[in-house]
Amino acid sequence: MSAAAALGEDLATYNFAYLDEQTKRMIRRAILKAIAIPGYQVPFASREMPMPYGWGTGGVQVTASIIGPQDVLKVIDQGADDTTNAVSIRAFFQKVASVAVTTKTREATIIQTRHRIPEEKLQAGQVLVYQVPIPEPLRFLEPRETETRKMHALEEYGLMHVKLYEDIARHGHIATTYAYPVLVAGRYVMDPSPTPKFDNPKMDMSDALQLFGAGREKRIYAIPPHTRVVSLDFEDHPFEIQTFDEPCALCGAEGVYLDEVILDDRGGRMFVCSDTDHCEDRRAAGHRGRLSPDEAYAGHGQVQEDTGR
């Protein structure tokens, strides 16, 4: 049959950005509602994606629904542009949407992220899309969905402080370091996805639009630009972000979030920027850290031995 033959020829092509147009409309409606009610989890009919749950199916669906041919996409995983998840999702959108991709934060119009917010301040017009595993901040304290929805509806958030109380009682300080709960626009308590609490202040009054997609849990939520985002705390135990004892070993940056990298089996390690684009930018601008290769060649101390400390 000629129809079958025609179908056969078209089989290799996808609809723009993989999802069909009706699905994108459904997701866009959920996104609009989420933006209208900052921090509120909007249910949506999450689709099967060609990747397992937990790999960013929610974020990919949000990105697929908002991306256009003119967009420039950046994908990061734990701050890095070059890890498996980031590379795969970037390649996916290159294939199904033929969009331009970049690793530069300031060039991107859409940044899909897993577990980090870029160090560079985001601009108006940029969209940050988070991949969210568990959108419900109250989930581990109250397992019933019917009850947590009621608690959100009635603004009963005492339980969230019970968790922080437990932290202080057990550890002497608030030991929650990631997925640190925030109050959005003075109304909804929200899980910022498993970003380190270091990134929480960046969400507050951001110029960029922040969208959150949870594929398995079928929820979308959002923080519109210029929205107040406050991390929960106690008066006598105020919210604090992580600090690091040493600067990045490659670019010397301070006041950024660092990853620990194990160098050998004798305790050698270094701390480097988790945001690879930020680190590369700084190195290109001439900044140097303790373990920068050119510095080692220049003979500033014996680097290999140093790492054993």
Binding site: L141, E156, G158, L159, H161, V162, Y165, E166, I168, A169, R170, D233, F234, E235, D236, H237
Partner: peptide
């Protein structure tokens, strides 16, 4: 709440009505 400490069990109602001072 069987999985949180006795102190938090007693304190939950206080936190629910807006007490935000751990001490």
């Amino acid at each position: 709440r069987m999985t949180v400490s006795a102190g938090a069990n007693v304190g939950e109602r206080l936190m629910a009505v807006g007490e935000r001072h751990y001490g």
